[in-house]
Amino acid sequence: MPNLEEILEKYPFVQRDNLIPVLQDIQDEFGYLSEEAIVKVGKYLNLPTVKIYGLATFYHHFRFIAKGKYHIKICNGTSCHVNSNILIINELEKKLGIKDEEITKDGLFSLEETTCMAACGEGPVMAVNDKYFTHLTIEKVAEIIDSYKSMEE
């Protein structure tokens, strides 16, 4: 894993318009933006940390807590919505005890609602890390989560 400095060095020009790309690179590498990272970026780009924090909280993709071992993305696009994905979201929340942008206490699961994943005919759709699940039902979701849980036991 490269350290933060190596990521920063890829941006030799201290310009504000590098801010989002820098943060994206950091998040790609570390999974989230830590306070330490924000402070370092601030020093590097000569920006107050509050400006970085303000910017990062504006955009949906930036997160400030680590992802779970299994990061679940559930599509909340229009088509999945009309295919009653709310039942699936409710089931996930119930099953995991967390909501959008949260992580379970044991660090196993984290949940993220996304916009359209481009599989509208197959909704409701979700992804666990890079594995996709389509045509979800309440039962199917429960099974999927249970199977991941049992893998950990």
Binding site: R16, D17, P21, G54, L55, Y59, H60, H61
Partner: peptide
């Protein structure tokens, strides 16, 4: 690369985003 904000489809918001701002 956008970082996830519907409003950035609006051209002036998109420009702010390209400039590294909210």
């Amino acid at each position: 690369k956008g970082a996830g904000a519907y409003v950035c489809g609006e051209e002036t918001a998109l420009i702010s985003s390209l400039e590294g701002k909210r």
